[in-house]
Design a binder for these strands. Structure first.
Length: 286
DNA sequence: ACGTCCAAAACTAGCCCACG
DNA sequence: CGTGGGCTAGTTTTGGACGT
């Protein structure tokens, strides 16, 4: 049987718990952090962007690598294509900020803030995609932390109900010729999956209020090509122009934009714009 | 910079009904 | 009749977005 686990090498100062538990997003579905096992479990997209695979990420004690274990109950096959493995690695690397560029940013951040180095704070946790980061930033607005979590949960439920592996061949799993059909994996919806819904459906299922139209417009603009999120992540774009472009999007104010900028790796202004004390207060109250 | 708007949460008041 | 629980509707609070 082929090896399904994957390994991702990390730097000597990398600590999984510190890389995950530093931003409220790690508590938002479909992320699931297990403090006892120090593992992060969540679905990730395969290379076709339609199917998902739930993985659990752990770091063996005092080791410089991460183990990515596909969850057996969801795994439809004993091995994955090279493209699938690359897609999963890329998403893990984005979430946990594992790259030479990120290592340089951590070094620079710790040089400016030595106290952050002492407590292991630098890599701010994010989602596998910028779209998920943006939608979750919108979900933070005008409501309590508990409501934000409920809305993220509802979006994942909606994805499973309306879009889960729809259109793709249902994979069979369980060896020995089992005829069991794989249950669609519940994941955070993609722009394509949201764009095909209408505002009424989105609101009825997720109770997003005014956020429904903002998220729907965002998804549709990405789908029709008028908004290209890859631009924001490319090295050629400077901080100021990204901020200006984001502020022009309807429903995106300074708070939401600062959150997105932080996810993109621009922490200098974001940390001061975001009233982090308020965010922590909300987390504690929750 | 400031006032207004917005949506949801939290709070409050009023009502009904069962029970002793 | 008094009390307490459950429910509903209305009001206030909260914290960002947005227009001027």
């Amino acid at each position: 049987m082929a090896e399904t686990r994957m390994i991702v090498v990390v730097g000597e100062n990398f600590n999984l718990e510190n890389a995950v538990c530093n931003h409220g997003f790690f508590m938002m579905p479909p992320n699931l952090w297990m403090p006892n096992q120090k593992s992060l479990t969540r679905p990730l997209r395969l290379s076709n962007d339609t199917s998902s695979l739930t993985v659990s990420i752990t770091q063996p004690p005092s080791q410089q690598f991460l183990l990515i274990n596909p969850q057996q109950q969801h795994s439809p096959r004993s091995h994955f294509s090279y493209q699938d493995r690359q897609a999963i690695r890329a998403q893990v690397a984005r979430m946990l900020r594992i790259s030479a560029k990120d290592d340089m940013m951590v070094e620079e951040f710790h040089r400016i803030h030595p106290e952050a180095k002492k407590v292991g704070f630098a890599r701010i946790f994010r989602s596998p995609t910028l779209f998920e980061d943006i939608v979750k930033s919108v979900l933070l607005c005008n409501c309590t932390w508990g409501r934000s979590l409920e809305m993220a949960e509802a979006l994942c439920d909606l994805q499973q109900r309306h879009c889960g592996n729809k259109g793709s061949k249902r994979k069979r799993w369980g060896g020995g010729g089992s005829k069991t059909v794989a249950k669609p994996i519940r994941n955070f919806p993609t722009p394509k999956e949201i764009a095909c819904l209408d505002e009424e459906t989105l609101n009825r299922h997720c109770n997003l209020g005014y956020r429904a139209s903002i998220i729907l417009d965002l998804a549709r603009n990405i789908q029709n090509g008028s908004l290209n999120l890859a631009d924001f992540e490319s090295a050629t774009c400077d901080e100021s122009s990204i901020r200006q472009r984001l502020l022009k999007i309807k429903g995106f104010g300074p708070f939401t934009v600062a959150n997105i900028m932080m996810c993109l790796g621009f922490t200098k202004r974001s940390l001061s714009t975001l009233r982090l004390s308020n965010i922590w207060k909300r987390l504690i109250n929750y």
